[in-house]
Every structure is written in C-alpha cells, then in structure tokens.
Design a protein around this nucleic acid. Structure first.
Lengths: 120, 120
DNA sequence: AACAAGTATAGAGTATGGTTTATACTTGAT
DNA sequence: ATCAAGTATAAACCATACTCTATACTTGTT
C-alpha cells in the first residue's frame, strides 16, 4: 500500500509516518520495476507495527526506546539470547508501568472517596 | 521543608520542581513571619503529590492533563459531582492505558516466542 | 492536453518539558 | 567578617516529536 492508505489505516498523518520512517522505525520499499517514480510501498504487516508504535507512545515510551526495541528485534546479527534479553527488559518496564498506573489509579479512587466525604 | 529537601525526597531536580511550581502544579508558601527572605516552604504532603505527578508523567500523562486533574480536585468551587466526574474520567483513561500496556506486553511476549523459534 | 490529487524531499516552525546560565540576595559555618 | 552553599527570579537554551511550507515530480481523470 502507499503512504496514504497506511495513514488512513493507522490514523497517523502522512507527515508523522514519514517522520517515523526517517527516524528509522520502519521502511517502505520502492518498486524496482517501476522506473518513473520512487513511490514507496508499505507492507500489510506495517499496520500492526505502527499500531504497536502508537500504543507504546501513548503509554510513555519514547521513539528512541521504541527504535532500540525494534532494532534489536529485527537485527539478524544479534544472538537469540541477546534479542530475548532486549525484549524481556521491555516487558519488565511495562510491568513497572502497569504497577505505576495502578498506584495512580488507587490514589484517584481514594481521592473520589475523600471528595464524597467532603474531606477536600 | 525547603526546596532542597523536597528535591532530595522526590528525586526531581530543584529546577524541575520550580518549573512545576510555576506551571501551577503545586505551591510553596513563604513564611509571613520571616521578613528577611522569601524562601518557600513545602508541605510534607507535597512529597506524595509530587510522586503522583512523577508517576503520572512516566505513564504518559502530560503536565497539562495532570494540572487539569489537580485543579479540579482541589477547586472548592466545583460541585462534588463535577469533581468526581473529572477524577473518574482520569481513572477510565488509566484503565485504557493499562489495557494498551497489556496489548504491547502481549505483542512482546509473542515476539519472544518467535525469536525462540527462529521465526525472525 | 490539462489539471487536481498524490508522492517525495528538505527545511522551517511549533509545543512540550525541561536544563542551563546569569544575577542577586540570604544563611550558616568558620 | 567572610565566604561557600542555598534560595529566588528571569531568560536563554535545548531535545523530542511532531507539523507545516515550499518545491518538484507523477499519476489518473476528463
């Protein structure tokens, strides 16, 4: 698919997608057979990948962290152990974040009780 | 306590704390009885409040969102119903974020399996 | 053939969330 | 008394993550 379709399917603007592509989060490929342009084609699987990027961003991961993760993941030269280590580290960070979210949530639920009791 | 202690207890730099204070996330108070300076005193309860701000930031909430939440919460002029509505809305956002984190986590755990199977 | 709409690239501009620097005053230990 | 360390304020500076503008080329429709 072309960038316009990827944009529509992911909900990210064409500008943002190009920014991500330049940042190195993914790559579109120009069709070698077509000489008249260098329009880039984006693979079906990129939709899911972009959604992952979106989700990771929304929960506070930076583009740099996301890039490191994806780089490790798809890098053929890394050993299986090293790859697993990278991804596992991210899973642990996620668990920390889930914990933090639950803390904030608890704080807010307590606050609601206080408000109901007129304590604030 | 003075800003230095607040900084040490929360792990945020003095600069960042001042930035947050100017942003309106909390207020220190100058001691009226002391005329020679206008050093600000920060209440014990601010430690917890700042930790909440830190936690909320780490899971992707912006300062603007955090401010809105705190403003609603401590605003005496808002009705109890309105306050609860504001805080409840944030609890729902948190639930969404927890859900997103679990999605990303699942994605990564799948990735680990793929790596173990040599599928990538 | 003409022209609106899509694509690519580069670069400027913007918002957020800080960090750093400069200046000036205060405090506390020696 | 002095002087390092702490505090306050303001402003400049910076990184991140976009967002917009300008330019140029391509495509598809009429």
């Amino acid at each position: 698919m072309l960038i316009n379709e990827l944009s529509k399917r992911t909900g990210l603007s064409i500008h943002t997608l190009r920014y991500y592509e330049n940042y190195g989060l993914f790559k579109g490929v120009s069709d070698e057979k077509v000489k008249s342009n260098n329009y880039k084609n984006y693979d079906e699987s990129l939709v899911e990948k972009v959604e992952l990027i979106k989700g990771a961003k929304e929960v506070g991961f930076t583009l740099s962290e996301i890039k490191k993760l994806l780089d490790g993941w798809y890098n053929k030269r890394l050993s299986v152990e090293k790859k697993i280590e990278i991804v596992n580290a991210k899973v642990n960070e996620i668990d920390t974040k889930i914990h933090q979210l639950k803390q904030v949530r608890k704080f807010l639920v307590e606050a609601i009780k206080d408000i109901e009791n007129g304590d604030c």
